[in-house]
């Protein structure tokens, strides 16, 4: 009797969890199906089923704005994201190695400062940073978006890498030192290769934050030829108002695709990153 009650409860729970899951996914599925519907169907037919399959939205959306197609926006986004990922991995892992493995004066203080910058809202430094980039003539280039990553701007990853490096046995360092490795050699040949899981997490999150970033890209890029995907999407609304939602949805689907594919392929690293550092 008791066992039966327990079982029923589980079935109910399972059904409930599934219903919530479908509700959660509904907006995403609706976006996908709308992008494949002719525009006259999008707002009249709320079902997910596509009655008249068409790729016209993808063709019209791809045309972009201001004479630039989405090929340009995707290229720009990819360049910004790629350079940011490379910089972040290098700067964060170097800093993390020093903080986790080397003995030097003020180490604790530096670690505390890294942790503090994690909580610092970037708005406090926004205006002076803008002025610096303005002075350097970097406005309307990708440099203000990329350079901070080469300077270890995301303290989250430093903390995560430090935690990971502390777990690597120190005996490996010692034996490498005896084999004649210097500090750099130990980093490059021992510690960094063993950190690959944490490095992958860093890469994935950096990519996806930069790919989805809107605020900084809007502030620093004004010329349509420099636009990234989020800026392209945003200006399609500005310009066409209500007219081409089909094209907008099609490009939205394409813009979400890289992030979703990466997530599904590397889920383990995402979960690891969220659980250890509370990344979003």
């Amino acid at each position: 009797m008791l066992a039966n009650g327990w079982r029923l409860e589980r079935v109910v729970l399972q059904v409930l969890v599934s219903v919530v899951a479908v509700a959660m996914l509904y907006p995403v599925l609706w976006l996908l199906s709308s992008s494949l519907k002719p525009s006259y169907d999008i707002f009249t037919d709320p079902s997910l089923w596509v009655h008249h399959l068409t790729f016209a939205n993808y063709v019209s959306g791809w045309k972009g704005i201001g004479g630039y197609t989405f090929a340009r926006f995707f290229l720009n986004s990819t360049v910004v994201a790629g350079l940011s990922v490379a910089g972040n991995v290098l700067a964060c892992s170097l800093t993390a190695y020093a903080l986790a493995r080397l003995h030097f004066p003020l180490r604790r203080l530096w670690f505390a400062l890294v942790a503090m910058t994690m909580m610092l809202p970037f708005h406090v430094t926004l205006i002076p940073q803008y002025l610096i980039y303005h002075e350097l003539g970097w406005i309307n280039t990708i440099l203000p978006l990329v350079v901070p990553h080469w300077l270890g701007g995301d303290a989250f990853f430093i903390i995560m890498l430090v935690q990971f490096m502390r777990g690597i046995p120190r005996e490996l360092d010692e034996s490498a030192r005896i084999d004649g490795c210097g500090v750099w050699g130990i980093f490059a040949k021992i510690v960094f290769p063993l950190c690959v899981p944490a490095v992958i997490t860093t890469m994935l999150f950096t990519f996806y934050w930069v790919w989805d970033d809107f605020f900084s890209q809007m502030i620093y890029l004004n010329d349509v030829s420099r636009f990234t995907v989020p800026l392209g999407l945003n200006s399609m609304v500005d310009q066409s108002g209500n007219s081409n939602w089909g094209g907008l949805f099609a490009m939205s689907v394409l813009s979400l695709l890289p992030v979703v594919v990466l997530f599904l392929a590397c889920q383990r690293y995402f979960v690891e990153g969220i659980v250890t550092t509370g990344l979003k």
């Binding site: 700067a91 170097l94 406090v124 430094t125 002076p128 270890g152 701007g153 500090v183």
Partner: peptide, 30 residues
């Protein structure tokens, strides 16, 4: 240990530049 300290600051150089150039300095400026 001196060598190690020098190496440590060298490793942290990018972050240090960012910390002073993009965080502390701009905070004071703001």
């Amino acid at each position: 240990s001196l060598q190690e300290a020098v190496a440590a600051y060298a490793f942290m150089l990018p972050w240090l530049v960012g910390f002073f150039g993009l965080a502390v300095g701009p905070m004071a400026a703001s």
